[in-house]
């Protein structure tokens, strides 16, 4: 049974201004789905639609047992305001807000769960350090802990590694992948790193709203040179060697790989 099912859903903010063609896909328990697309393709809008924070312009979005799954959300780290005088534990505790409800204080049990969540991402020792004083990678792990502390059925990550170096990116995605496997939650993540999508998802979605492009399917089938070149509008080479996916831009335009 699907956690979430989209049937011919068109995403966007205003009627008459769709940001995608009709989208049809479902998220099953334990799925790991990467979303790829150029800047402004509508990837984050698709996430917001799945999260239910904006309504689809048309089509049907349905849930298992008629209720939305419990969600854990990891936003783009740079969108947060580091002026707030919060420590890591206080940030993680916020992930309990959905379970607690309005006007109910966090209790001892919530604090213990938050400590456990921090421990699960290997950050027990920074619980009382100022959030803003942490490194970019540590902050993202704190946000993953916050997403996990609400015991989600679906983990949604919006460019979780956008400000990370390749080693930190690989470490975070490995961590998320391990946690997802251990907890049997589904994960849906947006990334600009083709190699990350290829390495950590079984299914990918290719989205470019400006060209009314949407495809979803097994990662091994969709992440190839032809489709990536068409998606990004520039020559992209994809090669698989020894179980790893190598990705680079042709004509000496730099590259990436994993």
């Amino acid at each position: 049974m699907s956690l979430i099912q989209l049937e011919d859903v068109v995403i966007g903010y205003r009627r008459g201004h769709p940001l995608s063609p009709p989208i049809r896909f479902s998220v099953q328990e334990g799925d790991a789905i990467g979303i790829l697309g150029p800047n402004g393709a509508g990837k984050s809008t698709l996430l917001k639609t799945v999260l239910g924070t904006i309504a689809p312009l048309s089509g049907k979005l349905s849930h298992q047992h008629g209720r939305a799954p419990r969600v854990g959300y990891v936003p783009q780290g740079h969108r947060l305001d580091f002026a707030y005088p919060l420590d890591a534990l206080q940030v993680v505790l916020m992930g309990r807000a959905g379970r607690k409800g309005l006007a109910r204080f966090y209790g001892r049990a919530d604090r213990e769960l938050a400590r456990q969540a921090l421990g699960s991402v290997g950050l027990t020792e920074v619980a009382h350090q100022a959030f803003r004083s942490l490194s970019g990678g540590q902050r993202q792990r704190v946000l993953v802990a916050r997403a996990l502390v609400g015991d989600p059925e679906l983990l949604v990550l919006d460019e979780p590694t956008s400000e990370m170096d390749p080693a930190a990116e690989h470490a975070l995605l490995s961590l998320v992948s391990g946690l997802v496997t251990a907890r049997k939650v589904a994960v849906l993540f947006v990334t600009h790193q083709i190699s990350a999508a290829a390495g950590f998802s079984r299914t990918v979605m290719l989205l470019d709203g400006a060209r009314a492009l949407f495809e979803a399917g097994p990662t091994g089938e969709l992440v190839n040179s032809e489709r990536m070149t068409r998606l990004y509008g520039r020559p992209v080479e994809v090669r698989r060697e020894h179980g790893r996916t190598l990705v680079w831009l042709s004509a000496g335009e730099g590259g990436e790989g994993t």
Partner: peptide, 19 residues
């Protein structure tokens, strides 16, 4: 707690069903 969450991270608060 709710004012603090929505002030710090509006988007995530909304995703958790916080009004």
């Amino acid at each position: 707690k709710d004012f603090l969450f929505t002030s710090f991270d509006h988007e995530t608060a909304a995703s958790l069903g916080v009004p």
